[in-house]
Simulated scan of single mutants.
Amino acid sequence: MKTHLAAVGSVVGSAVLTAGALLGAPAASAQTTAYPTTPFDVTYGASYVRGTLTWYNRSVGVEGTLRAVGCRRAWFGAYSASHSQLDVKSTSTKCDVTYPIKTLLNADVPGGAAYVIVCLDDANANPLKCERYYRP
């Protein structure tokens, strides 16, 4: 009987030691998933708006450049899968300048924005050219 208890004690001791070693092991580092991105480029004559859309869960980041030859504006609209407008942002009118753009479009619906429309407008906010970019 003594031998049996010693064997059981040895197995239990090994199990406790193994569990202790696992519990004391450093946790695996959490990996962050990069958000998908989409490049955009809307060019009209010598003017353009270019950059990258970053598709977050409930918003879309816009980062890029407006090059205005004459007077131009950049316009961005986020839309749901049912084509409802979720948010709109634009620059003010810029004339004969290269201007950095960094903004966030709210898309507070399940799944976020389905697509973004990017427009290059004239000085009076009339669209000269627009492109639609879908969530990847």
Results as ranks from 00 to 15, higher is better:
residue 5 L to M: 11
residue 8 V to W: 14
residue 13 G to V: 13
residue 14 S to V: 15
residue 17 L to C: 14
residue 17 L to R: 12
residue 21 A to I: 12
residue 22 L to T: 08
residue 22 L to C: 10
residue 23 L to D: 00
residue 24 G to K: 01
residue 25 A to G: 03
residue 27 A to C: 04
residue 27 A to L: 10
residue 30 A to F: 07
residue 31 Q to N: 00
residue 32 T to S: 07
residue 34 A to L: 03
residue 37 T to F: 04
residue 39 P to G: 09
residue 40 F to E: 07
residue 43 T to Q: 14
residue 43 T to H: 10
residue 48 Y to F: 15
residue 48 Y to R: 15
residue 51 G to V: 02
residue 56 Y to V: 06
residue 56 Y to Q: 13
residue 58 R to V: 13
residue 60 V to E: 03
residue 61 G to D: 10
residue 62 V to R: 04
residue 66 L to W: 13
residue 66 L to T: 09
residue 67 R to F: 11
residue 72 R to K: 15
residue 74 A to P: 05
residue 78 A to Q: 05
residue 83 H to C: 09
residue 85 Q to T: 12
residue 85 Q to G: 09
residue 88 V to H: 04
residue 89 K to S: 08
residue 93 T to V: 14
residue 93 T to H: 06
residue 99 Y to L: 01
residue 100 P to E: 00
residue 101 I to R: 06
residue 102 K to W: 02
residue 107 A to T: 06
residue 108 D to I: 10
residue 110 P to L: 10
residue 110 P to N: 13
residue 113 A to P: 08
residue 114 A to Q: 03
residue 117 I to P: 05
residue 120 L to E: 06
residue 120 L to N: 07
residue 121 D to A: 10
residue 122 D to P: 03
residue 122 D to T: 04
residue 123 A to L: 07
residue 124 N to I: 06
residue 132 R to L: 06
residue 133 Y to Q: 06
residue 136 P to Y: 07
